[in-house]
Amino acid sequence: MRRSLLFIPGNAPALLINGNYLGADSIIFDLEDAVSPDEKDAARILVRNTLRHMDYRGTGTIVRINSIDTGYWKADVDEVLKHAPDLIMLPKAGCKEDIDVAEAYLSEAEERLGIEQGGVGIIALIETAQGIERAYDIAGASARVKALLLGAEDLTADLKCARTKEGREIEYARARLVTAARAAGIDVYDTPFTDVEDDEGMRLDAMVAKALGFDGKSAISPRHLAAINEVFSPSLTELDYAYEVMDAIRKAAEQGTGVVALRGKMIDAPIVSRAKQTIAMAEELGIGR
């Protein structure tokens, strides 16, 4: 479960060592945009040591490597792969071939380092117009691709439009990514809300993302995490309804009734499926019945 994913600069020890206590479901050790070119070497050593020595139990670990059109990304992989991050985040994923390149190098590195083949998954960061249009190909390019994440800052630069708090300029991209990820059967996460001071705007933005079908949202500030976690957790109303649906299904099965109705509405397979998802998530969060 990844309701919230927090970007942490890969060269900031104070944040890295406290990554487990900031409230994120997953932390993203950032070796890309948050690290200047002359600090890439030091950052990847620091991230490697942190992964090796710190206890991140209960918090997922993701490393954002540099993109495959740079001279940094292979060294990033070599340094961190052995220390088992949950996922490698591949920035600027634009087409299936980008995943193929990363996949080939990950496999080669796993063999060289003597670690399980295919053990580390990829989260593809979609932040170009080409990536949006090819999102389904990217999502299905390899069994390693476990999720897509929308990067709206780079995307809007590529689209040649302004990035706004209202986010109308990324409506299509959001819907497209959710559809592509669902069609491929993988997870999908929303872009960060970049105004650290605007708590209300952040909450509204997270609600929009949840309504569209995203599994969670990324963040650049720990301050946003509590609201994101709340928005992406089942509400009590949703949970009550999910249990009512399952009760109705059970009773109907006991009575041998074919069609089930609840509150005047027919309960069909998609409603049952959603109810099961809601209950499973609540149980994982320890708020189930």
Binding site: I17, I45, L46, M54
Partner: peptide, 17 residues
């Protein structure tokens, strides 16, 4: 006030450089 793993990372980076 760095942790061991941070000091070790900084020493390794400096030596490599």
């Amino acid at each position: 006030g760095a942790l061991d793993c941070v000091i070790k990372a900084r020493v390794e980076a400096a030596v490599r450089r």
